[in-house]
Design a protein around this nucleic acid. Sequence first.
DNA 1: GAGACTTCCGGTAACGTTCCCAATAGATGC
DNA 2: GCATCTATTGGGAACGTTACCGGAAGTCTC
Lengths: 347, 347
Amino acid sequence: MGRRPTIIDVAKLAGVSKSTAARALSDSPDVNDITRDKVRKAALASGYERNHLAVGMRSGRSGLFGLVIPDITNPFWAEVARGAQDVVEENGASLLVFSSDWDHGREANHLRALRQARVEGAIVNPVSDNVDDFGRFGLPFVLIGSSAERFPDTPSIGSDIAQAVRLGLDHLVSLGHPTPALILGPKSRLARARFLRTVHEHCLERDIDPAVLLTEDSDYTFEGGFAAMQRLMARRPHGHLAVFCANDLIALGALLAAREAGRECPRDVSILGFDGVPAGAFSWPGLTTIEKPARELGRRAAQALFDEIAGRPQDGRTYLPCRLIERGSLADLSAQTPLRVAGAGRS
Amino acid sequence: MGRRPTIIDVAKLAGVSKSTAARALSDSPDVNDITRDKVRKAALASGYERNHLAVGMRSGRSGLFGLVIPDITNPFWAEVARGAQDVVEENGASLLVFSSDWDHGREANHLRALRQARVEGAIVNPVSDNVDDFGRFGLPFVLIGSSAERFPDTPSIGSDIAQAVRLGLDHLVSLGHPTPALILGPKSRLARARFLRTVHEHCLERDIDPAVLLTEDSDYTFEGGFAAMQRLMARRPHGHLAVFCANDLIALGALLAAREAGRECPRDVSILGFDGVPAGAFSWPGLTTIEKPARELGRRAAQALFDEIAGRPQDGRTYLPCRLIERGSLADLSAQTPLRVAGAGRS
DNA sequence: GAGACTTCCGGTAACGTTCCCAATAGATGC
DNA sequence: GCATCTATTGGGAACGTTACCGGAAGTCTC
């Protein structure tokens, strides 16, 4: 039982030198087919399995890659992880996964662990604003998520927030909600600014004064959305209230606040989310939302990383388009509005 | 920029031999404090970081651990992964995460990758019924989840389904639903048998004929729950219908089916879930459910793995208790039933 | 048939670390 | 002052693999 067989054991069993055995097992062309067969059989018979640690030491390629995300428990990041995992697996490598919990210290520790494990590259959603942490990272890496904007010099993948917001706004307009209320994320987040900028562009194009849009701040939580929606309803107690929420958790909280206030969705209230979390499919009514391509984000990040390592040309920043998922949380008021002649909405 | 500094560079910079440098950096007591300081400073100055591949090669301890779960995208498994991750991190090691997608082939590949990476141990939710795969695994490992029952000889961690079902049943009884209908999982799954067995024990203790309990089969999906609930309502068109579902997705589907049939929850229908998925908190009404301690499951599995490796005594199979989460999907009928004198339920 | 070329193989040196053994210097014991 | 002990250090070997170099055949060229 004792020791695991090494390539020397295989070589002995096959009656060749270890160089030949290594060549045979790594599909080098410089080996006779008969010999190769012999070695393969010997490897199989002895239960030999290549020691990746040794391979990594000698060749400098560990077959290991790293992923550092805020929280694997968050469904969005789980999808990202899954996408990255799949691509890494397709390339015959393995993925080291870390959760940073938005904590600088943990992030720094993870990056160090990654370096010490001699990963070939890493995908990181940076918590740190500190560009130096990454400048000194000393490894090929790809940034993922909107916070990557802070690092203009490194390849990064994110979702196209401008396109997404535009998609949501256009959809709202088509349903007769040209001036939806907004529940935004915290002022500290970059995504908020990008969201607002796109809304303003939209207003400009449609000759709408941005000031008419009711706006509430919130954090990205269910409770935050609940409270923000209550404030919104207090400011606009009558008439149909359409709300574009900065994420799905906020939207779900807003949905509950409306219901508890006796305002039924989508009859009295229209709510549009942003993210595409699974829970949105199980709410009542189902949450209409804009889905970020989370898994594809992970895949593309991993592919970009492999490209970078292989020395293939890089795109710099890539933004992936988002997709509208229609469920039941938006009312179709287009038939009643003078903006459009006719509406063909399903109820 | 070129090469990363090795311990030899550090040793040269500090003016000592590489043995001494290694000793100083690994906190060996056999080194002078002044020397240690010198080496530490040199390490810092040169930006030295220990090469874990080399450490692993020489010492046999790679600092790597493996986790093979069906799908990181599933919130339950994401929580498990997080728990395992945290414990592994606390021990200064790193975690390789794989999703098997309930596929034997992928599982086998992952196990091989784990061996080749020379992980020190692994946590696995086995897809394979094939005990041999694990007998031959040749590494310390811990099984996780209910399917681990198939492998009586290896340490495993799971949730205590019997306790959980009993908890749910007792709660239902206390609210005046002594004979709930059941929506079960597929016949092929072991968890189903365990669920049913506990229900039968419960009936026996309370002099209830198990045959009076309406029972429907389903898969573990939202759609499956939806269809099963429709069949249930067809069989019991009048009166309050209480349903104990084998998982939360089924319960969420049942909730929707009830609503679409015009039966309001919890007024006309009571639904109890099982799992504790996040989406249950956002449904309407909030889903009362039995929560599996997913993160703790992951933590305990990792701890058991470390114990096993350290040669500490192992418990064999461990079952963690589940917890009832009361939200709004259960009616309190206890005041109306002759079984109890008074009920103090909140509406 | 001599040289050049191809095909295949073996030996040896790394990769960066830790572990073991020996060596030095100073301290201690009598 | 000699032997012994302790504290500290240095020098190699080893872990399992791959890369490089050289050599032994056999094949081809003219």
